[in-house]
Amino acid sequence: MSNQRIYEEFISLMHELIQDGTLPKHLKNIELKTSTRVDELGLDSISLVAVLTCLMDMTDTYLPDNLFIANPTLWEIAQRVNENIKS
């Protein structure tokens, strides 16, 4: 799967989680772009766990929680996810 495809699925997952209340409402006002960094989203630890587990479920792959370490951009997260899928 390409990084672009993973990224698109990741963003649509984020929108879904914002919509159903799993992620905080303030994210509705933040535009999710390839260059957006995790810290800019202002997520608490529970929300980060929610994103991580939903990503695992979406990709059917176990992902390490260092996925969000070093404040990656959303594009970099998609890349890391793809690397895990391939490995």
Binding site: V49, A50, L52, T53
Partner: peptide, 21 residues
């Protein structure tokens, strides 16, 4: 419902038997 979704669906199912979580 929401509490169970976070604690069970995410933490328990996402990280079953993993100490750090």
């Amino acid at each position: 419902f929401h509490g169970w979704a976070v604690g069970h669906n995410m933490t328990h199912h996402g990280f079953t038997n993993l100490a750090s979580k």
